[in-house]
Design a binder for these strands. Sequence first.
DNA 1: TTGCCTATTCAACAAGTGTTGAATATAGTG
DNA 2: CACTATATTCAACACTTGTTGAATAGGCAA
Lengths: 214, 214
Amino acid sequence: MTELATQNNKEINKKERILDSAEALFAQHGYDGVTIRQIAKLAEVDVALANYHFGKKLDLFHAVFDRRAQQLSDQRHKLLAAQQSSMQTLEQVIEAFLMPLKMAQQTEDPGWRNYLALLAYVMTSPVWNKIMMSKFFDKRVVEFIAALKDIFPNASEDKIHWCYHYMSGALALTLAQTGRIDRISNGKCQSTDFDTAYELMVPFMAAAFRKVCD
Amino acid sequence: MTELATQNNKEINKKERILDSAEALFAQHGYDGVTIRQIAKLAEVDVALANYHFGKKLDLFHAVFDRRAQQLSDQRHKLLAAQQSSMQTLEQVIEAFLMPLKMAQQTEDPGWRNYLALLAYVMTSPVWNKIMMSKFFDKRVVEFIAALKDIFPNASEDKIHWCYHYMSGALALTLAQTGRIDRISNGKCQSTDFDTAYELMVPFMAAAFRKVCD
DNA sequence: TTGCCTATTCAACAAGTGTTGAATATAGTG
DNA sequence: CACTATATTCAACACTTGTTGAATAGGCAA
């Protein structure tokens, strides 16, 4: 995200090409919906090379997920900690939570957009959620919820958790880019329009949080 | 839902046992994460029987999805149409949209809970969303959005669509029952607690809709 | 040159996949 | 009983899966 976009790397680093291809395919078809051979074909490398670099298929999946998770998680932590002063508003906290994803999408690197879809896949999967989300993101969510507790000192913890859950769901469906909002709105809204999605999401969620937690 | 729960059907109707087993496995592992042999084993029938009754694997998937989709869609339509009078409040409209899912969960039949997770899988999947959701549910969503337009005559259509999108995401993550809210809240909240999830969701979404669309 | 390490390809394995046709059981009808 | 249609099982097929060990290429140091 801070680095330059590494697009059009078709002639260099095969190792990263494997990661990029796996990322794109896993994001769209899920773990079981993708074969190593499909990944290798898209990356234009031999089938055995993925195994050489990353080991088993499951290890490759972890490698794909971890590559950008660290960056994303760090960004969230920075933004939340930066405004750790007790002057923070609800809108600021929500924005700090969403901003890294918005920035990831705005990068020229198309890999980031694929990664966000992969993140949505992991978030909504009953089997992957525990395994993958606890590695990096759960810690940041705890920080986010702590900030919410400061803002709503009188709210029960349960309500805050459920409110976060709703926001997390809205976020996940946005990241997934299923194309449903395009279809239902007859093309007037677009799944790929993250700017609008995030812009509207902040006041939407802020009002909802206040209603339930205040 | 209106019929009696058909639990403990282990000694009868093998055809329905296949559907039930496929439903449970597809919901948890997705389409590609499940083999016909796993389904047959769980249903305690021969591998070839699934093919005999439902044809190809993809046809079985459709059969599983369609079985309860019709009921769910009809319920939504009834509830929305019943209060078609211009006296309906925002809360009533949202409740009419969520109620069928709440009722499905409250049934004794554990198959319904599996089905809701399957629905979440389809809703969040980039590949399945278009194929499956357009068959039954898109029509009801259009009705739901029409009701929202009546309530917010001055709101732009885009905003209404995005608000629906957020709610749909929150709903999908709830249906998915990933166990994440359990983990983050240290067990204080539970993914299976649909009652609380729906109860809080109505005021949450109502306030959010008003903020953005009013 | 030789030697060595890493990267990459090739060919192949054993296991598992969806699917199918024939064989067998079951139940209902005359 | 026999006849028939449906339901179920059995065995096997052709194909794909992840994975691996041996073979090859390329770069770099001595």
